[in-house]
Design a protein around this nucleic acid. Structure first.
Length: 271
DNA sequence: ACATTGACCTGGGAGC
DNA sequence: TGCTCCCAGGTCAATG
């Protein structure tokens, strides 16, 4: 479910409630996520102060006294801030109670998410150290993308969703960015011109920034940390719109499968 | 080094 | 109503 805007919206939402506060109790009801939650996590977190709530790619990083809590929301995960008396439901796997009367609650029906702990510098963690640049920094530049595309045989859409090239661009925003940049998602990455590379980098940055402003995209069940949906779905041009008219030229929007992922495009605008 | 596929899970909707 | 099948916002690990 969550791509970078949804994760960033979540981070911004939970930060003011937990940063600077001390953890009282951690309740873990389900240890089996993508990887098992460390068996001693509740004990480790006891009485630790939360110093910073950061993000790298789609990971939320909660810096504590003696280490860093690494949280990934997978496909269906969410983090919400609730009052302590809020009873847990079926997929509410972890509660972290803070000393100000709130709990941070991790919910994840599909359990593709992860909650891990590291006491080493987080940039050395095996899930983090091979990640590409953040899309909203200047490291993700037209020149960088153009060079990464050289000699690649995969499609430009597959390349854009590869976290070793650039992080945070999932299926929705890859579709949207390619539409805005007028690039056919199936085009081999190696065939991308410098001009197209420039358009694509701009499109990715604009789409992600706008989506963060709107609080992310709620298609089905994404919720911001306060329970409200994200409103970017209203600004989607192409994703999920098979057979509808292209907002640019009116052609019928097509749907194909590329690397097992639904890929929407306008056959007229995206050559 | 790169590309492709399977795997991990649950829930919702379509079609019969 | 209920069954089966397919689909879903991610991404690692194994394989060629």
């Amino acid at each position: 479910m969550p791509e970078l805007p949804e994760v960033e919206t979540t981070r911004q939402g939970i930060k003011p409630y937990i940063e600077g506060h001390r953890i009282k109790t951690t309740t873990i009801r389900q240890y089996q996520l993508r990887w098992p939650i460390p068996a001693d996590l509740a004990e480790i977190l006891q009485k630790q102060k939360i110093h910073r709530v950061n993000r790298r790619a789609k990971y939320i990083l909660i810096h504590c006294d003696s280490g860093i809590l690494i949280i990934h929301l997978g496909m269906s995960g969410s983090l919400r801030v609730l009052d302590t008396n809020c009873p847990p439901e079926k997929h509410d796997h972890v509660d972290i109670e803070v000393d100000n009367g709130y709990i941070l609650r991790f919910t994840d029906p599909r359990r593709f998410g992860a909650i891990l702990w590291t006491e080493d510098p987080v940039e050395q963690h095996k899930l983090i150290k091979h990640l590409g640049p953040e899309p909203l920094t200047t490291d993700f530049s037209p020149d960088y993308l153009f060079k990464q595309c050289r000699s690649r045989r995969c499609s430009i859409k597959t390349l854009l969703m590869n976290g070793k090239i650039v992080v945070g661009v999932g299926n929705i925003y890859a579709n949207e960015a390619l539409f805005h940049a007028k690039i056919n998602p199936l085009k081999p990455a190696a065939d991308l011109s410098k001009a197209a590379s420039g358009r694509l980098v701009s499109a990715v940055k604009n789409i992600l920034a706008e989506a963060i402003k709107a609080g992310g995209t709620t298609l089905k069940d994404f919720r911001q940390s306060d329970g409200k949906p994200g409103y970017f779905a209203q600004q989607l041009n192409i994703y999920g719109k098979k057979g509808e008219n292209c907002p640019q030229c009116g052609s019928s929007i097509e749907l194909v499968r590329e690397s097992q992922r639904a890929t929407y495009f306008c056959p007229c605008c995206q050559k």
